[in-house]
Design a protein around this nucleic acid. Structure first.
Length: 590
RNA sequence: GGGGUGGUAGUUAAGUCGGUUAUAACGCCGGCCUGUCAAGCCGGAGGCCGCGGGUUCGAGUCCCGUCCACCCCGCCA
C-alpha cells in the first residue's frame, strides 16, 4: 500500500471480499474491550464495519485499539475475514470483520455529549448545539442523502424536458404584498435596502419574456415570519416557469416529475393522472383547501334538512345563512364520552362554538341534542348522510367558514384515531379553481389568494372592477396526504390586465410603477403567455422520509426563535459595520 | 403578540406535604476480562437544581419576574 487512500467505505465489504487486504477510515462508533481482543465498530456515512484487534495477532494494533475513544477518527489496515458463527444480521457488512494489522488514530475525540445512535436520547438543544455530531446519526444522514438524490432526480427529469437551470438574484427589491421581508442595508446607497427573495417570482416571469421558455431553479427563499414544525425562515423551492403553458401542461410536468422521484426513491409507479378537485368542493367536503384523501369520510351539508328543527342552535344558524355540516363516522361505540370531549375541543379550538354528536342506535339516538330532533328530521339526516345504525354523527353549526374548517379538523382527528392516515400510502390531488381574491378586513381591501401575478378564468375578468371576490383564479395546488406540496398558476402576461389587478389590490398607479414598473414594461415587449409552479423541497423530503420536523431534513436548521444554536447567529455587529451601512440601533430595542 | 409543555451531574431522567449529605441509568476515570454487537463485571469521581428576586427557621420543591427550547394560534401573496 503505497498510497494512504481508503480502499473501501465502511459499507462496502461483503463475504465475497474475504481475504482481501483493505484500508478503511472512519469514526469509532463503539469500542468493546475484551481484554485479549478489542472490537471496534467503524462508521462512515455508508455503513458500519467491525474491526477486530487481537493481542496475539497484532500486539501493536491491539494496544492502540484499547485506548480509542468513541467518535475518534481511525485508520485501519487489515484483512477481511469471515465472521463464521459470529455474524451480525443487523449490519449489512455483518458477515465479515477486518482483522487489524496496523491501526492509527488520525484524530482523537473528547467524550461526546450524546451517543451517536438513531434513537438518540439527547434533547434537541444539545443536538443542535453539536449539529456535526447529530448529523453523524445514520437516520439524519439518510435524510440528507435522500434530499440530494431527490434534487438530482429533479434536475435529471427537468433537464430531459428541456428546462434550463438559471440562477436569480438573492439581493432583490422589497415586495409590498405577502410575507415580511428580510432586509439587507445598502452600503453604497445610504438608507436604501435590498430584500432577500420570498420567491424568484418576477425574475422567472422576466426570463419568460426573455425567451427562456422552460426555466427551473432549486431556489432558496426567505420569509421573516414565525416558525413552525414544518416552517423555517429560509427554505427551498423547486421553482419552475413555462412559456405557452396551460394548467394541463403543468399537471403533466409535475406529475411526471413526482413519478420520477417516487420511482427513484421507492421504485414505485404512481397512478396518473392525479385526481382533481375544485376548491369549492374541497372546502365543502373537507373543510380545507388541502384535503387528506388517504381516507374518504366527506362532510355533508344538512342545513336545509334541519332549518326548521326544534334544536334551536341548528335552526338559528340556518336562519342567518350559516351552515350545518355533518360527518358520518363508523363504529360509534368505540368513541367514549372522553373521546367525544376531545373531538369537541378540536372543534372549538378551530373556531366552532361546539360540536353536536349523535349515536344512532337501533331504537333511539343518543347524544348531546338527540332529544331535540323529531323522527322526520332524524330520517332526513340519515337519508342525506347515509348514516345507519351503529354510526356516529358529528355536527357543527356556524357561519360557513368556521363550521367547515372546524369539522374538517375533527375529520382529520377522527382519521388519526381510526388509523386511516397510513404512512406509506400516497394520495395525490390537484386542487383548482381557487378564488382570485379574499377580503382582508384589517387592510379593508381584497388581497390575492395566490399572488398578484395570477391570471383569472377568462370569463371572470369582467368582474374585476365590480365583484372581484367572485373571480376564480387559474391557480392550482398539488396536495399530498393533506400537505400542500406546491402551488402555481397561469400568470398575467398583458400590461393592461396586470395594471387592473394591481389597482383592484389597492396599489396606486404610482406604487405599481415604482415596485413593478419593470414587469409592466416588459409585458409591452412581447411577453408570451406563461405559467409555473413551485414545490416545497423541505416538505417533500419530510413526506418522503416521514420526518416529523423540518429540522430533520435541513443540514443546519434554525430554532423556533430563528436562531442557529451552533453558530449563535444572529449576533451583534461591530459599530464600524453599522456606520458603513448608515444604520443606528435605537436604544429602546435592546 | 397570545396559549400550552419543559429546563436537576457530560447526557437522559426521578425527586412525595417545604425538612438529614439531591437519586438512578448511560457516559467519564481506575481495575478485570479473547467473540462482543451502544459488550460484560468490580470500584471511583462528577451538581450555579436555567437565571434574578421574594416568602420561610429552612426552597430543587411555594410566589413574582426573566431567559432558552419545543408544540399550537395569530402570521406565512
Amino acid at each position: 500500500m503505497t498510497e494512504d487512500r481508503r480502499t473501501h467505505t465502511c459499507g462496502d465489504l461483503r463475504l465475497a471480499d474475504a481475504g482481501r487486504d483493505v484500508l478503511l477510515m472512519g469514526w469509532a462508533a463503539s469500542v468493546r474491550d475484551h481484554g485479549g481482543c478489542v472490537f471496534i465498530n467503524l462508521r462512515d456515512r455508508y455503513g458500519i464495519t467491525q474491526i477486530k484487534a487481537d493481542q496475539t495477532v497484532a500486539p501493536e494494533a491491539f494496544s492502540l485499539a484499547t485506548g480509542i475513544k468513541m467518535e475518534s477518527v481511525v485508520r485501519v489496515h487489515g484483512r477481511v475475514a469471515d465472521r463464521g458463527s459470529n455474524r451480525n444480521p443487523n449490519l449489512a457488512t455483518g458477515e465479515i470483520e477486518i482483522e487489524a494489522a496496523f491501526l492509527e488514530v488520525l484524530n482523537p475525540a473528547k467524550p461526546v455529549p450524546f451517543t451517536i445512535v438513531d434513537d438518540v436520547d439527547a434533547s434537541e438543544v444539545t443536538r443542535l448545539n453539536y449539529r456535526y455530531l447529530d448529523l453523524r446519526r445514520p437516520v439524519l444522514a439518510k435524510n440528507l442523502i435522500l434530499r440530494s438524490k431527490v434534487a438530482r432526480l429533479t434536475r435529471e427529469f427537468l433537464d430531459a424536458q428541456g428546462f434550463l437551470e438559471i440562477e436569480t438574484p438573492i439581493l432583490c427589491n422589497p415586495t409590498p404584498e405577502g410575507a415580511r421581508d428580510f432586509l439587507v442595508p445598502s452600503r453604497v446607497h445610504p438608507g436604501d435596502f435590498y430584500a432577500l427573495p420570498q420567491s424568484p417570482q418576477t425574475y422567472k416571469q422576466i426570463l419568460m419574456v426573455a425567451g427562456f421558455d422552460r426555466y427551473y431553479q432549486i431556489a432558496r427563499c426567505f420569509r421573516d415570519e414565525d416558525l413552525r414544525a414544518d416552517r423555517q425562515p429560509e427554505f427551498t423551492q423547486i421553482d419552475m416557469e413555462v412559456s405557452f403553458a396551460t394548467p394541463e401542461l403543468m399537471y403533466e410536468l409535475i406529475e411526471g416529475m413526482l413519478a420520477t422521484i417516487w420511482k427513484g426513491v421507492f421504485d414505485l409507479d404512481l397512478q396518473r393522472p392525479f385526481p382533481r378537485m375544485p376548491y369549492s368542493e374541497a372546502m365543502e367536503k373537507y373543510g380545507c383547501d388541502k384535503p387528506d384523501l388517504r381516507f374518504g369520510m366527506p362532510m355533508v351539508t344538512i342545513t336545509d334538512v334541519v332549518a326548521a328543527s326544534g334544536f334551536k342552535v341548528f335552526a338559528d344558524v340556518a336562519a342567518r345563512d350559516g351552515v350545518v355540516t355533518a360527518l358520518r363516522v363508523p363504529d360509534a361505540e368505540s368513541f367514549s364520552r372522553k373521546d367525544l370531549d376531545g373531538l369537541t375541543k378540536v372543534a372549538t379550538d378551530n373556531g366552532a362554538k361546539g360540536l353536536a354528536w349523535f349515536k344512532i342506535g337501533a331504537e333511539e339516538w343518543s347524544g348531546s341534542a338527540a332529544k331535540f330532533l323529531n323522527p322526520e328530521e332524524k330520517q332526513a339526516i340519515r337519508d342525506r348522510t347515509g348514516a345507519g345504525v351503529g354510526d356516529l354523527l358529528l355536527v357543527v353549526a356556524d357561519d360557513a367558514g368556521p363550521a367547515r374548517q372546524a369539522l374538517g379538523a375533527v375529520r382529520l382527528k377522527v382519521g388519526d384515531r381510526l388509523g386511516l392516515r397510513e404512512a406509506g400510502k400516497w394520495s395525490f390531488l390537484w386542487v383548482e379553481n381557487f378564488p382570485m381574491f379574499e377580503w382582508d378586513a384589517g387592510e379593508n381591501r381584497p388581497v390575492a389568494v395566490h399572488h398578484p401575478f395570477t391570471s383569472c378564468v377568462p370569463e371572470d375578468l369582467d368582474l374585476l372592477e365590480t365583484q372581484p371576490l367572485k373571480m376564480r383564479a387559474r391557480a392550482y395546488d398539488v396536495i399530498l396526504n393533506g400537505t400542500e406540496l406546491g402551488g402555481g398558476s397561469i400568470r398575467i402576461h398583458r400590461r393592461d390586465v396586470q395594471a387592473r389587478v394591481f389597482k383592484a389590490l389597492g396599489l396606486t398607479e404610482e406604487a405599481a410603477k415604482t415596485k413593478f414598473g419593470f414587469l409592466l414594461e416588459a409585458f409591452e415587449y412581447g411577453a408570451p403567455p406563461h405559467g409555473g409552479i413551485a414545490l416545497g423541497l423541505d416538505r417533500l423530503i419530510m413526506l418522503l422520509t416521514g420526518a416529523s420536523s423540518i429540522r430533520d431534513v435541513i443540514a443546519f436548521p434554525k430554532t423556533t426563535s430563528a436562531t442557529d444554536l451552533m453558530t449563535a447567529s444572529p449576533s451583534a455587529v461591530d459599530p464600524g459595520q453599522l456606520r458603513d451601512l448608515h444604520l443606528e440601533i435605537s436604544k429602546s430595542s435592546k
